[in-house]
Amino acid sequence: MTAAQKHSGTPVQGAAPVPDTGVFGLLAEFQTVPQLMAAAEKVRDAGYIHWDSHTPFPVHGLSDAMGLKPTRLPYVVLAGGLIGGAVGLLMQWWMNAIDYPLVISGKPLFSIPANIPVMFELTVLCAAIGAFLGMLVMNGLPALYHPLLTNDRFRRATADRFFISIEADDPKFDAEGTAGFLRSLGSSAVEEVRG
């Protein structure tokens, strides 16, 4: 099932009819960062929901311009860290003090100072895995197919051009009107992307 089919199956509230034509949405190209920022603010203010900006590098302030909320990734990392630390400590306690107790260099079987390094390393390791995998999962990656990646112009989104895409399943989407709106924002090219 392609993304467009999936989207067209979703009932949408609002007046605009959903065009069930296999159209993923519209892609508008911008030449510079300031143009993109200004356009993103206007798209946000126009009330679009299913839209995105595409840039070759993280543009500082763009998330604000798009009205994105802070991500909840830090909680994933915190959870990862707590799990790693707890597992690290419990593992050492169970293995060295319970399952195979062995006196070494006169230290207690369960000696917290000696257990801190391994506990620390596992805390960091699990928190880092949380950050990495959490980022991928929240971002819907890996995704080996996406309609936008079929567009030739979009190839420059990872090099030197800036794009705004508005998806067809946005309640305010209207092929003609939205395209005109994007052009009015100073886009150098607006294209339809089929999915």
């Binding site: 260099s105 006169g106 230290k107 100072p113 000696a114 801190i116």
Partner: peptide, 12 residues
């Protein structure tokens, strides 16, 4: 603080 404590505690 931990480095100092750990090394002295461990070496004893």
């Amino acid at each position: 603080a931990f480095s100092q404590f750990m090394l002295m505690w461990y070496s004893n």
